[in-house]
């Protein structure tokens, strides 16, 4: 049972580290905006591949129809 004498302070230190990390993150503004990142994650990876959402036309194709499939996955 005497292992508890080490376990409890150890657990406290771990919890303290978690709280410390949380405070750092909060101070750096990680929790300022909780809505936009959720949206951003949906369509983040098409920048390097323009036209990826519709391989049948290029950027210059001005007359492209609009009823192309959405780039975001349904």
């Amino acid at each position: 049972m005497s292992v508890i004498l080490i376990m409890i302070p150890g657990a406290m230190i771990l919890a303290g580290l978690g709280v410390w990390a949380f405070i750092i993150a909060a101070k750096k503004g990680q929790f300022d905006d909780l809505d936009t990142p959720a949206i951003r994650a949906v369509f983040d990876d098409d920048d390097e591949r323009p036209g990826w959402h519709d391989p049948s036309h290029t950027i210059q194709d001005e007359a492209a129809p609009q009823d192309q499939s959405p780039p975001s996955a349904h």
Binding site: F43, D46, P50, G51, H53, D54, I59, E62, A64, Q66, Q68, S69, P70, P71, S72, H74
Partner: peptide, 16 residues
């Protein structure tokens, strides 16, 4: 939008 290759806007808009 079309000049800059950003037509994807319409797709996302229709989806969301």
């Amino acid at each position: 939008l079309h000049g800059a290759g950003l037509e994807g806007y319409y797709g996302i808009r229709d989806a969301v």
